[in-house]
Design a protein around this nucleic acid. Structure first.
Lengths: 235, 235
DNA sequence: TAGATTGTTAATCGATTAACAATC
DNA sequence: TAGATTGTTAATCGATTAACAATC
C-alpha cells in the first residue's frame, strides 16, 4: 500500500463504496473495471489505478468480487468500526445530522449534542441528549469522542473549536462558514454549503453565456430569454 | 475572459469572495496577491492565475482593490442577482436550508418548500410556505424557479428530479445520496454529506497509521494508544 | 523616478488516460 | 487452453508554481 494517497483518490472512495453497495443489492457478485466504469461514468483506467493504490483487489480474467471489494473499501474508510460523534449546535442542521440514518448505518454514532439555547438543552434526539455547551469539557473528560461536528454560527466556531482541541478532539467536521486554523494534528473536513450553492450559481451563468445569451439583459427563464433577447446579441 | 474555466478555479472563487468580505469588514482597501496568499495559505501565483482567467482586476505596484474585486467575483458567482430557490423535502435539512441566513444574504431566496408529510404541509418557514408535493407542477407553472434543492430520501430523489426537469427546472442542488442522471442541459451540484464524513474518517485512520500505530489493535484516543501499544509495533 | 506588484510565459508537478504484458 | 481482464508502465493532459518582463 502506497504511503501518500492523493486527495482526489480519497474523495472517490465513498462513491465506489456506494456503487458497490448498490451492486450487492442487485445480487451481482463480480464486475470488471470496464463495466463499473460505464455505470459510474468514469474510465476503467481510473478505477484500476485508484484501487491499486491500496492493493490488488481484482483477478485477471474475472474482475472484482463485489462483496470483498466493498468490505475492503469499507475498512479503508473506517466504516467497519464505530466512530463516536458529538454535534455542537442543535439547530436545524445539527438536528438533521443527528437524525440522519445513513450515518448510524456506517458506524457514525451521535453520542451527544451541545447548544446554548435553553429551549433545546435537555431534549433528546434519537437517543442523544442535548447538553448545555458549558458542559462540553466535562463531557469530554467522561466520554471518548472521535469526531465533533460544528453546526453553529461562524462567529462562535473558532472559540468552540479551540475548546474541542484543548480537550483532545482531533477531528472536526466543520459546517461553519470559516476556515478553522488549528494545530497540524487536527483534521478538519469542511462542508461549506453556501460555497457549493455559489458554484452552482456560477455554472448557471456560464451555461447561459455559453448558449449565446447576454447576462445583464437576460430574463430568468432560459427559453423566454432566448426568444425575447436572442436576436439582440448575435445569436 | 477565457472560455472554459476549470472546476478547480471555480471551486476557489467563493473562498476568495469570503476572504474579501472579511477584508472589507476590516476596512482594508487594497491587498497584494502575496499578502492575500499568506492569509489564505495558498500561493500568490495561484491567486493571480485564478483571477486572470476572468480579467486583469489588479494594478501593478498596488495590488487589488478589495471592494472592486469583491464586486467582480460576486458578479461572476451570480450573487448580484436574485436566485429563486425551492426546497423539496421539508425535514430537518430542508428547514435548515430555509432558515440559513447566509443564503438570503447572497441573493438566494427560498420561495417554497414541498413535502408529503401532512404535519408540515401548510406551515410557513421564514416566509416560505410548505406545499404538498402534489402541487409541484402547478407551482412551477405559476412561479419562476432557478434552483431546486433536493433534501429528501434517496429513493424518491430520481422521480422528483425528473418531475422538476419536466417542469423546466435546470439547476438542482442535490443532497440525496445518489447520482442523478438527467439531461445534459441540467446542472447538478451534489452535496453528499456522508461522503464528506467518510473522507474525514479515512484521514483519521491514515493519520493514526502515519504515526506508526497499528489499526486493529489501537485504542480510540491516540495518546493512550501510543503509550499502551506503541512498543508492540516497532515504534 | 524607483519600488512594488501585476499579468503572463515557462517549468514543474501531479493526475488521468492509454497501452500492454502478466496472469487468472 | 483461449479469452478476459487485471496490474502496471508509459504517454498525455491539466493544474500549480516559478520566474520575470511589463507597468503602475
Amino acid at each position: 500500500m502506497k504511503e501518500n494517497i492523493s486527495k482526489a483518490v480519497i474523495s472517490r472512495l465513498p462513491r465506489y463504496y456506494r456503487y458497490l453497495s448498490d451492486l450487492i443489492e442487485e445480487n451481482v457478485d463480480h464486475i470488471s473495471s470496464g463495466d463499473l466504469a460505464k455505470r459510474m461514468h468514469v474510465t476503467a483506467s481510473q478505477i484500476r489505478q485508484d484501487l491499486n493504490n491500496f492493493g490488488g483487489f481484482g483477478q485477471q480474467g474475472y474482475g472484482y468480487n463485489i462483496s470483498y471489494l466493498h468490505g475492503e473499501i469499507g475498512k479503508l474508510l473506517g466504516i467497519d468500526r464505530q466512530n463516536k460523534v458529538i454535534i455542537i449546535g442543535a439547530g436545524h442542521l445539527g438536528q438533521a445530522l443527528a437524525n440522519y440514518q445513513n450515518f448510524s448505518k456506517r458506524g457514525f454514532l451521535v453520542k451527544a449534542l451541545f447548544d446554548i439555547d435553553s429551549r433545546v438543552i435537555g431534549t433528546v434526539i434519537r437517543g442523544a441528549k442535548v447538553y448545555d455547551l458549558k458542559e462540553l469539557e466535562h463531557f469530554l473528560r467522561q466520554n471518548e469522542v472521535d469526531i465533533a461536528a460544528l453546526t453553529l454560527p461562524r462567529d462562535q466556531a473558532t472559540e468552540v473549536a479551540t475548546r474541542l482541541v484543548a480537550s483532545g478532539v482531533r477531528a472536526i467536521w466543520n459546517f461553519a462558514h470559516t476556515d478553522l486554523q488549528l494545530g497540524e494534528d487536527v483534521l478538519i473536513e469542511n462542508v461549506h454549503l453556501s460555497e457549493s450553492l455559489m458554484q452552482l450559481s456560477y455554472r448557471m451563468l456560464a451555461a447561459r453565456e455559453g448558449s449565446g445569451e447576454n447576462r445583464k439583459e437576460m430574463r430568468k427563464k432560459a427559453g423566454t430569454a432566448h426568444a425575447k433577447r436572442g436576436a439582440d446579441f448575435g445569436l
